[in-house]
Nucleic acid binder design. Structure first.
Lengths: 132, 132
DNA sequence: GCGTTTTTGACAATCATTCTCATTGTCGCG
DNA sequence: CGCGACAATGAGAATGATTGTCAAAAACGC
């Protein structure tokens, strides 16, 4: 029960979702993405969109954000670990890397004896355009 | 537009929720707290529990956490800004302060011209008891 | 006490997400 | 190349936490 059990199959729908995520910028909800696919003429069920997104998220290929608003937002973003700086007003997002934070979190957790450490961090603010 | 007239009234229900939060440890969902109040013999509507918790959260008297699981968890905790180190297995929580992170977030945001900066940060790990 | 204004609470409504399950599409293997 | 096992799909139902509604009750100033 280690690795090779998961036979992930290549389907039209999965490709469509991946392709869409590769093209659009910013975060989008599952329903949002579903609507876009529909506009493109791709017939993909909402359930499948959810499942595919979950799969991609588990695989670490996309990021999930849970804004206070309610719905989950998904986004394909750069590899590796990073965080997001999001504008409260227009949603404009900047990816930020924080080696400082990574090591801090790791250190603090270990000081308390916690292992297998992970963390979530989102920064919210008002971007220059919306503030001016 | 005389907005300064917000008269918050003292009610039995509000006190009950506050008192309960003062006694219990750890995070609890609204429904959880509602059930506890019921067991105590306090008759408080679920709607009221939600409203009271929201109010307390707005006032900064309690913390809200949104675990991936789904429901919001509320907890009365120490004053001031801090974060939580939560055990994935048993839920044991440690409050941690991170001046480093606070200033880092502020600095990064400002570098990008963002103002009115806030952030959310949760650290997850496996605590000593659960790991051993 | 009295009237005004907030608060309460039972219930309905909302809404994103998950579940169900019969059907369909993939892909390994002969 | 074709078969068959089994993952994947999808339409609709189900779930379940949270929010809205609104008449009735409680608090507070006077």
């Amino acid at each position: 029960m280690t690795e090779s059990g998961t036979a992930v199959r290549n389907t039209r729908q999965r490709s469509a979702v991946s392709a869409l995520l590769a093209e659009v910028d910013g975060f989008h909800s599952a329903q949002d993405l579903h609507a876009m696919l529909r506009d493109r003429g791709e017939r993909v069920g909402l359930t499948t969109v959810y499942r595919t997104l979950q799969g991609l998220a588990d695989a670490g290929e996309i990021d999930v954000m849970r804004p206070p608003g309610g719905e989950h937002l998904y986004r394909r973003c750069s590899e590796g670990h990073h965080h997001h700086l999001v504008c409260r007003a227009c949603g404009r997002t900047v990816e930020v890397a924080g080696p400082t934070v990574e090591s801090w979190a790791e250190r603090v957790a270990r000081q308390h004896g916690y292992v297998e450490v992970s963390h979530t961090l989102e920064i919210f603010g008002t971007c220059p355009s919306c503030a001016g």
